[in-house]
Amino acid sequence: MGYLMPGDDEGIDAMAEASLPAAPRIRRRHLWVPWLVALITLFLWWLVTALKLFPPVALPSPGAVVHQLVVTATIGYSGSTLWADIGASVGRITVGFVAAVIVGVPIGFWMASNRVIFAAVDPLLQFLRPIPPLAYIPVMVIWFGTGELGKTVLIFFCTIPIIIISAMSGVKNVQETRLRVAQVFGATPLQQFRYVVLPSALPEIFTGMRVGIGVAWTCLVAAEMIAAQSGLGSMIETAGGELQISVVFVGILFIGLIGYLMEFIIRTIEHRMVPWKGKA
């Protein structure tokens, strides 16, 4: 065979590809581990209750919790079903959280691009940040009562500093070379923002959102326990008062599951929107 000419490489590629084995399967064998852990935990729980090591008012059996789940889901507990309480909680967090993102991201961008705005907002932000959001709950009750508005505002205020800070640091971490690329080609400030600044800031904004949703959820459940007639927090608070421990367990189970689910949703959106994260 003689020298290969530029056009001949298709032949080489075809040859090489034909003899390649199929793409290696990603081993997913470790995926059963969490299920096994869950199963063992469930079994131990059942064992402890079956041996009656604790009185049933303190620790309900798995069977009792499942039974209570069916009851709260269908008949309801203290006037409202499980779904109604979940709906109330999820509705509040969605409105408060989305509002915090919509307002917080532009404020963060603005602070990163304008020293005066930064100087005006940053001290306030640094002052608010170390305050546990739970400390606002009494203020919320006094100002807004126990209605929907108070809790939505509370979520908004406990999430927004996190979102602002992540958007701001996302912008500040833009790689200089990438900005210069846009400037070289004569990009307008708007084009620089659209094609370089915004995509550079997205990974950090998503990180902020993932942290923020966790904080918001914790804060909401606490607020519902203190001042609400509906929601998962209110449900476990009422049940606790009536020593209905299995209802409390159902509530805790769903608080955990929903928190997990919300983080998962944000992570999925992140994977779609920032596929290059960690690779560049």
Binding site: T177, R178, R180, V181, V184, G186, V196, P199, K279
Partner: peptide
């Protein structure tokens, strides 16, 4: 900077 002066950078500069 201006578009009549194109630059090939020494550092990686592609937009990921």
């Amino acid at each position: 900077p201006g578009p009549e002066r194109a630059v090939v950078f020494q550092q990686p500069s592609l937009l990921p």
